[in-house]
Design a protein around this nucleic acid. Structure first.
Lengths: 239, 239
DNA sequence: ATTATCTATAGATCTATAGATAATGC
DNA sequence: ATTATCTATAGATCTATAGATAATGC
């Protein structure tokens, strides 16, 4: 292995040996690229204080660089939020697309829904700095973030479609797929609120998944079956 | 009735006849006091753009006064948000306190829970400018808003307590009151998200209430009974 | 005299750009 | 030469205060 030639490689043992003018405050060996250091700092601050209340100066300070240096990596503050939002829905969305394709065949709808909720809850529970919080920022309503909102809408539609397939007849008769999707995604996102107070544990995941299934009218037995199907599905697909 | 002596009375027929220097842009006869005009404008803008992204100048402009004139009525921008938040949970909270006192006696727990959800959903559905959105602003995490957060926590605790009382044994065994409270209040607040896209109708209210009851494990029959109890409860109490 | 506005402005930001500089790479 | 930082700063805010002013009330 040739050392020092890789772009995203490990930092050298004890010397900076990095390209460009050295930072005034020397880099803490976090292993992240400057770009990712900035994104990480921005995420933490956006979540804590919101987008508009976070200054580019505060972000730079957290990284350990000067305010103007941000602009070498990003064209503006907006771009930071765009990047954070899109990289946070996309993974869920990709998994989900694979899942939904197999539904009317090898996989029960209730099992697929349970799997979707588990994946989504797990993703939201693991994101650094509880990035999911950003979905709720008022700034995200702006045109600048249309792409993200489209992705999120697709996720919600999937909740609606799977939920309706899994639902009992009486639920299907009174709750449209659109409404059900809104309710189910809202339930999954309970995790975001939870994380504001404490760590998320397995009992939380179980409670939320169970609630989603009951929301579709499933009986306790059907809930238990869907849970088993989801577990099988997820270990099989090795997601 | 003596005219022109009442504080919050109707404006005169066609003349301003109001105390203080007249506004540069003459008052649109909205019937609101200057203070309430400011609160209303602030609410609309906070909801649309967030707290930090809304300047005092923008608020003043919407009211039709100069930026500095805000400070005659409010000590600062924070105070506007404090006022908006507290006046928006308090009414729900007051009704809810009356409700929960009667529960272990004359009222079934499931009926009381259904009534609580209906009241809360209805309140959120009716607030001008969808003020509930403000609950989710990151700024509200600050100490400045402790009072509001305490009120909201009390509401959530009530959801947890009533939900647990109404819940079936299997739910009670796996979901703590704290978790259930978080889930139920989150469900009620689906309305807030809904209102971002469109008006809320009765089918929405029904879907959300139903989901809350099913979340507690109630069977379709039990849900129907709880619904009837809630309706009786609310018409009797003439809330 | 009291009230509710106004004008003007101080002082503190904040974003983004211009251009210099200190490393490495060739 | 290229890269990633730095310093310096322009120009545009934004919040809050000081003090003037135009009404009504007594």
């Amino acid at each position: 292995m040739t050392a020092g030639c890789e772009d995203g490689g490990m930092p050298a043992d004890d010397r900076p040996a990095r390209l460009g003018r050295p930072r005034a405050q020397p880099d803490t060996a976090s292993g992240l690229s400057p770009r990712d250091q900035i994104l990480d700092a921005a995420a933490a601050l956006f979540v804590e204080n919101g987008f508009s209340a976070t200054s580019t100066r505060a972000i730079a300070e957290r990284v350990g660089i000067r305010q103007a240096s941000l602009y070498y990596h990003f064209a503006g503050k907006d771009d930071l939020l765009v990047e954070l939002l899109t990289t946070s829905v996309r993974p869920s969305l990709d998994v989900v697309r694979g899942l939904v394709d197999r539904v009317p065949g090898s996989v029960s709808a209730a099992g697929a829904l349970a799997a979707l909720v588990l994946i989504d809850v797990d993703t939201l529970a693991r994101t650094p700095h509880n990035i999911g919080t950003l979905y709720m920022l008022p700034e995200v309503q702006g045109d600048r973030y249309d792409g993200f909102r489209a992705d999120r809408q697709e996720l919600q539609d999937t909740y609606g479609r799977l939920g309706t397939l899994a639902a009992t007849a009486d639920i299907r008769a009174t709750v449209t797929p659109e409404r059900l999707g809104g309710i189910l995604i809202q339930l999954a996102e309970t995790v975001i609120q939870l994380r504001r107070d404490r760590e998320v544990d397995d009992q939380d995941r179980e409670a939320i998944t169970g609630t989603c299934l009951r929301a579709c009218g499933l009986t306790p037995d059907a809930v238990a079956t869907a849970r088993r199907d989801a577990t099988a599905l997820l270990t099989a697909a090795s997601v």
